[in-house]
Design a protein around this nucleic acid. Structure first.
Length: 596
RNA sequence: GGUCCCGUAGCUCAGCUGGAUAGAGCACAGGUUUUCUAAACCUGCGGUCCUUGGUUCGAUUCCAAGCGGGAUCACCA
């Protein structure tokens, strides 16, 4: 069965051709606003000039023409220049009977597009635990991967762990100074937050030394540069690079603690990766690319020996790609890593980087340089840029302790879910494992939905004082709708049937029709979400569907409907809604319970 | 200063490539359960879509300028 919108576009296009001999008219259909009668609307204003007819006249003529020639057009009306068209009851019943037993309605088959996409996300530093900003990154990356897969692409999820550098050395140094040999095991702390503690300790020490130096008459810059703590950290980084055994051993130990911690957090968030890269393995990549760029005169050596590229003709600035001492800068390794991936996966259709919008400029530069170096894949690189999560008082800052810790927040969400569930008292038959699982599902559902319902491009506000809601436009609302559907189906001992109601005798209830129409738009939402890399489209789709279902639920009888055929239709419809909700929420990484 | 992003109800957000009287949730006021899960449903209240111009039959949407907020422009990552 052809889609409703395409169907209408075709017949209206034909009508315009027949009536006015205009063949190249782009026909655009929109959904009819609820205050008017009709399913879809065609706006006639664009045709007034070519036909010299009034918008009303055009609406009447086109409306009559398509109604006469198509059995599925049941009626039309014209308001000003808007031609509102109603599709017949039979159309929607046929459509529904066709899709109602799909288990994966709207979801493309695995790898059906033939495209392989690499998507990088998460990419944490290993000197401190994850915070709310990382949560947004992880949820966004994971969800976009799911959405791309549901569009038929093969997605390779990768994580590039920033496991080396001055920040790690800071934690290491502070641990050596202050820990007296303590470990996560000895303190009972989670590994990443244990290490993070020493990162904060370092900063305290560093700051106090700066204050001291300034009070002794040094300038702020001098003090920041010469404080013993930072000198020691830099020294340690050099030792790391030269392979000092003790430093390497400590580095391995502390990173291992952090990984233990991250593992737990990732597990709670339900995210995962197909491949993990470590920067300690990739940070030297890119140096030979610099030589290649020099030989092609794309890069040039500056007087002091550093290597740069001039991008001023591209609206960007001059960019250093190698330090005067021959060591890499950030972009050097990014160039190297990208090229390495092109080699490793020669048939990659796309390479996506999930990184905050503070790095918009960096990625513009990176892609531009790749392009200048002659890598055609540069055109398929995409920066999935997302806005910062802000607190009421502004940006979160790790060192100032104004961050919302990921583990703390998750734990709070689960506790709130537990309290709410217990107050409502609907799961007395659950054992404690089942109950615990449910609290987790609901708590994380609330958190994930809260994050993903916002357009990724936009910055978002999180107020720790106002806990994340469980009512209204939320994850638990949608989960609740799913549980409600399951409850009905269970009570009915539902099994998918093949009964189709006779369109002559059964007039769909407006709530039923609205549900079918909205389910119809799922495929569109899914392609749109992939095109825009935007899970919020799916999130909002789910909410609208759940809302329509609840309306339907309150308006009509399902189990108590006496006419068996109608009852079965409503059960079928409930079943389909439930499975679409479940599949769509899975694209957000959100589970839906069968009872709550 | 250059570049980029953002500005919609008291708050948090939708608004598809320009279309009809701009929508939700929270909050606030009220109503719905001897009946399928009330984490629900319904009603009400709430708006110079930052401002001013321009394009258009039509602009929250496109363009320009201004105001306000943010990011970025390192031999940091």
């Amino acid at each position: 069965m052809i889609s409703a919108v395409l169907f209408l576009e075709n017949i209206i296009s034909n009508a315009i051709n027949t009536l006015y001999q205009i063949s190249d008219e782009k026909v655009q259909i929109q959904t009819t606003r609820p205050e008017f009668e009709g399913d879809y609307t065609f706006v006639t204003f664009n045709l007034t000039k070519k036909t010299k007819l009034s918008p009303e006249r055009l609406g009447d003529q086109i409306g009559s023409h398509i109604q006469i020639h198509n059995e599925f057009i049941s009626s039309f009306n014209v308001v000003k220049g808007f031609l509102n068209i109603s599709l017949s009851n039979a159309y929607w019943l046929n459509y529904f009977s066709e899709i109602k037993s799909y288990k994966q309605f709207g979801i493309a088959k695995h790898n059906s597009s033939g495209k392989t996409i690499m998507l990088e996300y998460s990419s944490p530093n290993t000197n401190k635990p994850l915070h709310l900003g990382h949560i947004r990154n992880n949820l966004l990356g994971f969800s976009v991967a799911k959405i791309l897969e549901a569009n038929g692409h093969h997605v390779i999820k990768v994580n590039l762990v920033n496991d080396r550098g001055i920040h790690i050395c800071k934690s290491m140094l502070a641990w050596k100074k202050f820990a007296n040999g303590q470990t996560p095991q000895s303190t009972g702390l989670k590994g990443d937050s244990f290490v993070g503690k020493y990162y904060v300790e370092f900063d305290k020490l560093y700051k106090s030394q700066i204050t001291q130096l300034i009070s002794e008459g040094n300038s702020k810059e001098e003090a920041e540069k010469n404080a013993p703590a930072i000198k020691e950290a830099q020294q340690m980084l050099q030792e790391w690079e030269t392979g000092n055994e003790d430093v390497i051993a400590l580095w391995k130990t502390m990173n291992a603690w952090v990984y233990e911690g991250f593992k737990e957090t990732y597990k709670m968030l339900g995210v995962n990766f197909d491949k993990i890269y470590y920067e300690s393995n990739t940070y030297l990549l890119g140096k030979e690319v610099v030589n290649y760029g020099l030989s092609k005169n794309i890069f040039y050596k500056k007087e002091n020996g550093s290597v740069a590229i001039n991008l001023t003709n591209d609206g960007l600035d001059e960019k250093i790609v190698l330090r005067s001492d021959g060591t890499s800068v950030y972009i050097t390794q990014d160039l190297g890593t990208a090229i390495e991936r092109f080699k490793e996966f020669p048939n990659l259709s796309q390479l996506i980087y999930t990184v905050g919008n503070e790095q918009d400029y960096h990625f513009k530069v990176l892609f531009k340089i790749l392009q200048k170096l002659g890598y055609e894949q540069a055109n398929e690189c995409y920066h999935l840029s997302y806005g910062m999560v802000e607190l009421p008082e502004g940006k979160m800052k790790s060192r100032e302790g104004t961050v919302v810790d990921a583990d703390d927040l998750i734990a709070e969400m689960i506790i709130t879910a537990k309290q709410t569930t217990q107050e409502l008292g609907k799961i007395s038959d659950f054992n404690s494992d089942e109950a615990q699982q449910l609290y987790k599902t609901i708590g994380l559902g609330a958190l994930k939905y809260f994050i993903l319902k916002v357009d990724p491009k936009k910055k978002m506000l999180f107020n720790p004082k106002e806990s994340i809601d469980f009512n209204g436009h939320t994850g638990p609302f949608i989960q609740y709708t799913h549980a409600r559907i399951c409850s009905i189906l269970k009570k009915a001992n539902y099994i998918n049937n093949n009964i189709v109601l006779n369109a002559e005798t059964y007039q769909l209830h407006s709530c039923e029709k609205n549900l079918i129409k909205h389910i119809y738009t799922f495929e569109n939402a899914l392609t749109e979400a992939a095109k825009e890399y935007n899970p919020a489209i799916i999130a909002n789709y789910c909410y609208d569907l759940a809302k329509l279902y609840n309306r339907f639920y309150h308006e009509v009888n399902i189990l108590k409907e006496e006419n068996t055929s109608i009852k079965l239709l409503r059960l079928d419809l409930s079943n389909l809604c439930g499975s679409v909700i479940k599949n769509a929420m899975a694209l957000l990484g959100i589970e839906v319970p069968e009872k709550m």
